[in-house]
Structures are given as structure tokens and as C-alpha cells.
């Protein structure tokens, strides 16, 4: 554990925060739905990194378990999301999220 503990927790958390913010910015700024999906993956990885870092800081296995859970979740999310993207493309002939804004109040 010595080699790992050379990286302080703060640094790992800052990195995960940066990753998460980048993902959020991607969702907010990108209109292509594929890029939105990829940004979500980035956000998830940011969150997962925070788990791993925290788990190693306190020497608990929970962080790594959560990381595996998040990986699975991301895979499932990607498959469902891609299927939805396919449907959206068939219906609207575009991947622009703003085109699919029919349910506005």
C-alpha cells in the first residue's frame, strides 16, 4: 500500500472533481446525443475514482466494490442509451438533443 499512499487523497479527489465537471460541461454544451452519452461515462468514472481513492485512503474494500458496481452500471447504461440513440435517430433523422423536445410544457 506504500506506493499508492504516496498520492494524497486530496489530489485524487481533485482529479475526480475535474473529471466530473468536464463530463457535466460536456452534457451542458454538447448537442450531439452520442457525445452526451460519452460525457455521462466521464462523469461516472469521475465518481468511481472518488470511491477508489476513498477506499484506499481508509483501507477498505468498499471503494473497489463500488467501482465494479459503477462499471457494470455504465455498461448497462451504455447499452440502453445506445438503443435509445438508435431509436431517436430513426425517428428524427438527427442526433441533436434539441430536436427531441416535444414534451415541453
Amino acid at each position: 500500500m506504500n506506493g499508492v499512499s504516496a498520492i494524497p487523497l486530496e489530489h485524487a479527489l481533485i482529479l475526480s472533481g475535474i473529471l466530473f465537471s468536464l463530463g457535466l460541461l460536456g452534457i451542458l454544451l454538447r448537442r450531439n446525443i452520442l457525445f452526451v452519452l460519452m460525457s455521462i461515462e466521464v462523469m461516472m468514472n469521475g465518481a468511481a475514482l472518488a470511491f477508489v481513492a476513498a477506499g484506499s485512503r481508509w483501507g477498505a474494500a468498499d471503494g473497489q466494490i463500488m467501482f465494479i458496481l459503477i462499471l457494470t452500471l455504465a455498461a448497462a447504461e451504455a447499452s440502453v442509451g445506445l438503443a435509445l440513440v438508435l431509436q431517436i435517430y430513426r425517428r428524427f433523422n438527427t442526433l441533436d438533443t434539441d430536436a427531441a423536445s416535444e414534451m415541453k410544457g
Binding site: L28, A100, M103, G105
Partner: peptide, 14 residues
């Protein structure tokens, strides 16, 4: 409040 439901995904996310 109905105005805020614009149907735009990015607006919701924000």
C-alpha cells in the same frame, strides 16, 4: 413554472 419546462435536455441538466 410551465415556461421552465422547455423540453430541452441541456436546460434540465443545468
Amino acid at each position: 413554472t410551465a415556461l421552465s419546462q422547455s423540453g430541452r435536455l441541456r436546460w434540465y441538466t443545468a
